[in-house]
Design a protein around this nucleic acid. Structure first.
Lengths: 231, 231
DNA sequence: CGTAGGGTTGAGGTTAATCAAGTATGGTGG
DNA sequence: CCACCATACTTGATTAACCTCAACCCTACG
């Protein structure tokens, strides 16, 4: 049996509730799948036979509009699970999934997993927490889209990604964007053009230095003020 | 024991998984609460000690921005439960709740409910479905906010509320708005002014007749076309 | 009759999308 | 090693959607 796989599974909040035997059983029926950059994993509406764990790389979950524009809901990183909730809806996946860069995922079949839900109440509680976190995440996105402008959303993202122990950015700090700017734009619910312009504006106003994917914080205080204005 | 209460509880998808004894036990520890129009039930961030079932009237779940504007996430009607998910997050309610009109709710304490989760796997599965439905609902809201204009959202709402067996509106059909227009505006993520203007435009274009809260469908085909354009 | 609340209408301004063009940058094949 | 191309990114000009502010209407109700 694959030791590294078991290790990864144990590392997730959800699956760590399983005992050794269950973990091994689940590992046996799971399937690995390699994805190339931008390769689709599933589409919105596809029937759901199980959920996924990211083994390597990252997977993007996104909605797509009739005219083709996209909004990224979440980027699942190595060690994270996704599509757990979809297993319990009759209407298939509520979003699309594709690899950000080359990636590998582990597919965990619904049937075996649900069987384990039936005997372990700890596993149930973990899954409830998982789903509740999703609900939180989605309500946060709704709040952002409804009440905040792109500038505020962008700065929020930076703070969230790069904050120190105090939960804040500090002057001189280097922020290296590890994802494409256009992907980030989609995550912020805007276009690459607007994203670029907002970065530019922050630079012109002396809050941030921009050098390709390398950002340098110039005026952390001002940045924090902008997001705190709309909570 | 209150027969009517038991009846209501049995009527919900979630609680119908409980057996008689459990139902009675839960009814015993539950608490009824009457709310007057616009009375707050809880605020975002409040600690969560349980969830709610609407006994009468309706309860509105909404986010509120720093400058005071509101976005309604859901209007829970008689017989519906809400805040189930919040029980499993460490960060309190993710939204505010208040009565739309005079209403009555039943508070179901977390502790007893979670205890029942531990022994009934059917109950767990129902709850998973509940949470998955919430996730679906929230992703739909996100889709609407990100990709669709107010006109399209409004028509979608009307179709959703008043569709016949075929899932469509028909010419001459009377649609009676049972909630305040300003509340509807908040539900559609817009302002009363814009809401009013959109209705006006639909009337001017001969798609709809507007007489206070009474709408009459003039051109169902055209209405459906508008929403189908953006899926 | 007067007032209050919900609703409507108009003018003006802001945000951000769209369209179009131009600039790096990195990889590939000659 | 260089020319070429694809791709991401940037910038400018224009436009569209929608919000804000302000005034006004209408109806219910004291």
């Amino acid at each position: 049996m694959n030791q590294e796989l078991m290790q990864m599974m144990r590392g997730t909040p959800l699956l760590s509730a399983l005992n050794e035997a269950e973990l091994r059983r689940l590992a046996e029926v799971s399937r690995r799948r390699k994805l190339s950059r931008k390769e689709a994993l599933f589409l919105e509406g596809d029937p759901v036979d199980g959920f996924y764990l990211v083994l390597a790389g990252a997977v993007r979950l996104f909605k797509i509009s009739a005219d083709g524009s996209e909004l990224t809901l979440h980027i699942a990183q190595r060690g994270q699970t996704f599509a757990e909730a979809a297993m319990f809806t009759p209407r298939g996946f509520p979003a699309n999934a594709e690899a950000v860069d080359a990636a590998e995922v582990l597919f965990l079949p619904r049937e075996e997993f649900v069987a384990m839900l039936r005997d372990g109440d700890e596993l149930c509680l973990r899954l409830f927490r998982d789903l509740a976190i999703w609900i939180r995440r989605l309500t946060d996105i709704i709040f952002s889209l409804a009440f905040r402008d792109v500038e505020s959303r962008l700065i929020s993202y930076l703070i969230q990604q790069f904050r120190d122990e105090s939960g804040r950015l500090s002057n001189g700090q280097e922020l290296h964007l590890d994802v494409e700017k256009s992907l980030l734009a989609s995550y912020l619910g805007t276009t690459p053009e607007t994203f670029s312009r907002v970065l530019r504006k922050l630079q012109d106003n002396g809050l941030l230095n921009v050098d390709g994917p390398r950002l340098t914080v110039i005026d952390a205080e001002a940045l924090h003020e902008i997001v705190e204005l709309d909570e």
